[in-house]
Amino acid sequence: MGDVRAEPDFITSFRGGWEAFAELDEVIWNPISRATVLRSQPRFDERVLDACAGDGASAVPTAELVGPGGVVDAVDLAEPLVEIMRERAGERMPQLRPQVGDVTTWPYTGYDLVQCVLGILFFEDPAAGTRHLVECVRPGGRAVFTVWAAGAMDRIGELLAEALPTDDERVPSFDDARRATIVGADTAGNFAHWLTERGLADVRAEVVPRHLDLDPELAWRLVTGTGFRAFIGGLDDETREAVRERYVAGLSRGSATVDLTTLIAVGHRPPE
């Protein structure tokens, strides 16, 4: 099992609130994961590493596709999400192996497929972590990575930036962290190039567009159930409610939709 590194800020901010993440499954995580699995095409009897597996949105359907003769190591740093995944799978999928661990130091290699859905942004070093995952693929095997496209989740960041107190030391700096994308990897072309530099060959990246209408409840869930939660995690109940009210009020100004467009890239590790 990979060593579990010091708890990242985004995991600390979710302490006691992982249900909010799971509540977005049908709205966000499942559709994006289905689109990824459609392109990663897990095959019968394959060995798969599902990195940053969360509560199993991509790992569970992958386990169904590899069948009882395959193996899916589904790894995430967040133990509560791994437990949700275990409960969902039950005993019907012995090929699914949910595990708590750090995929950036995962010690096992030789996988037919490595896939990572919306995870590499949270690596301490996205480039190094992605290269490590590529090295977990057997020569000739494939890797599939999904990231947010340019502009994705920007509306949520704009609304939250307007709602947060500007003089509260409990609120992290918002200038850089509001980005949901990886610099230099937010279009299909530059994402393919970025992954090629990490060791993949024959990379094909495509844009998967999606927009979602926002109502006040969903708009706030997109804060409490995503990485944006880090900006309200340290606030007391009264301050947080004031932020929520200002945030929801902002919906009446500008667009009432959020861009959930992703980039999905498929590549192969070159044969030795």
Rank of each mutant, 00 (worst) to 15 (best):
R142L: 09
E241H: 14
Y247E: 04
P94E: 00
Y111L: 01
A78M: 10
P61T: 00
A6I: 09
R178M: 09
T105F: 08
A59R: 04
Y247S: 05
I32L: 15
Q95P: 00
T257W: 10
E23Q: 15
R86F: 06
R15G: 10
T166H: 12
A128T: 03
P8W: 11
D154F: 05
Y108K: 13
F10A: 03
L251R: 05
I84C: 01
L96H: 01
V100G: 03
T36W: 08
A192T: 01
G199M: 03
G225R: 09
R39D: 05
I120F: 07
V72L: 04
H193Q: 15
A242G: 14
D73I: 02
T12I: 15
G2C: 06
T109F: 15
D175L: 14
V147I: 11
G56C: 09
G254D: 04
V71T: 01
A59L: 05
A230V: 13
G67Q: 00
R34H: 12
V117G: 10
S173A: 13
N30I: 13
V72I: 06
M93E: 02
G225K: 07
E26Y: 08
I232W: 08
T187K: 12
D102H: 07
V75L: 03
L200D: 00
V147K: 11
P98K: 08
G189S: 11
V266W: 11
V208Q: 07
G70D: 00
F228C: 04
C136G: 02
L24M: 07
F14Q: 13
E241I: 10
E241D: 15
E135S: 12
V103L: 04
R253I: 12
D73N: 06
D175K: 14
A230D: 07
H211G: 03
R244N: 02
D175G: 07
R92H: 11
G129V: 01
L260H: 06
L263Q: 06
